[in-house]
Design a protein around this nucleic acid. Structure first.
Lengths: 171, 171
DNA sequence: AGCAATTAGTTAGCTGGCTAATTATCATTT
DNA sequence: AAATGATAATTAGCCAGCTAACTAATTGCT
């Protein structure tokens, strides 16, 4: 879903590192390489998830919308609420919903009390699709994360959180 | 650069968890939440980097092309080589180069020995732009990664690599 | 020499991200 | 009751990713 920042085979060799170090002495090589690796691994995991969802004719965006709807007792949310919960802009959500409506996984229902507003509802076909995907998804996530013992995973997460909280250095 | 998968405020509450656990008993809640957090943090860091580059009128894709060119002694690569090194498809690279050419940061040079081929060269304006960005970038990466002591960072990376190597579970 | 296969690059058309601007409706205020 | 302001959703137009299909040129084989 994003640019694959760095092919591992393209880690700079020592000649290149020297060139860059000479021109930009403020570089800390190990932190740069680690940073790029973190971005890269996130991208790889995201791609793997997309490829998996692709087998069911979905991608992360639309799949996530369906999950958000399924969380609701009546399977309904407004477009704006969906955009907020998914963390995307409203125009992006419009596009995701358009695709889901086309595939019949979701329906737009008119709102009688406010004619600007549409209710978005997970259809029974959408629910069926989720019931196909989710067990498989959960199994695979369990297998993926299973390579690390749970204490390690907690540590890992804490450290990533620290980085994230520090991401304001780019402001 | 990718979908923001999960707003922290939208972590499922216990009522929702129960609903999903009942319907999908194969779910391992902690591994799912950790997995989503990892994706999310990668996306946040990537966004922060994009926003930073945006101050200089660039985004990750074009910036990375310029860095790859600067690595070469003659500042030249072919479009195909750039696509491979950046890990994107050839059509995507065509688009990135188009944008860079438009801004004068890169030039297309004809190749006399093979008229299908173009050489892509970093212009002096492009080099000037990199010289503006890179010191600032390196400083910020150093500050970002500095929150974790270097042994922690090594551990973190090792664990992420293990996850990555295991990402074939999604195949 | 000539035809087939390969290669470099682009175009077309899809997905999904964004901001800015627009349309339609609702709410408020006078 | 009318004008102003706010809000819901969409449209327009950009960037960046992809696959499939295409053009043009080179390579290789007989």
């Amino acid at each position: 879903m994003w640019l694959i920042m760095l092919q591992l085979k393209d880690l700079p060799d020592s000649k290149i590192l020297k060139k860059f170090a000479k021109r930009y002495p403020e570089a800390d090589v190990s932190s740069v390489i680690q940073f790029l690796h973190i971005l890269r691994i996130g991208s790889d995991l995201s791609d793997a998830l997309d490829k998996f969802l692709g087998k069911y004719g979905l991608l992360q965006g639309r799949w996530w919308v369906m999950i958000l709807l399924m969380r609701e007792d009546d399977l309904i949310l407004t477009s704006t609420a969906l955009a907020e919960k998914a963390g995307v802009s409203k125009p992006t959500m419009t596009g995701l919903i358009d695709g889901l409506v086309r595939d019949g996984l979701v329906a737009r229902l008119e709102d009688n009390s406010d004619r600007r507003r549409y209710s978005i509802k997970l259809t029974s076909l959408g629910q069926k699709k989720l019931d196909e995907i989710m067990p498989d998804y959960y199994l695979r996530v369990r297998n993926l994360m299973g390579v690390l013992p749970s204490e390690r995973r907690e540590e890992l997460l804490l450290q990533l959180m620290q980085l994230k909280e520090n991401s304001s250095v780019f402001d």
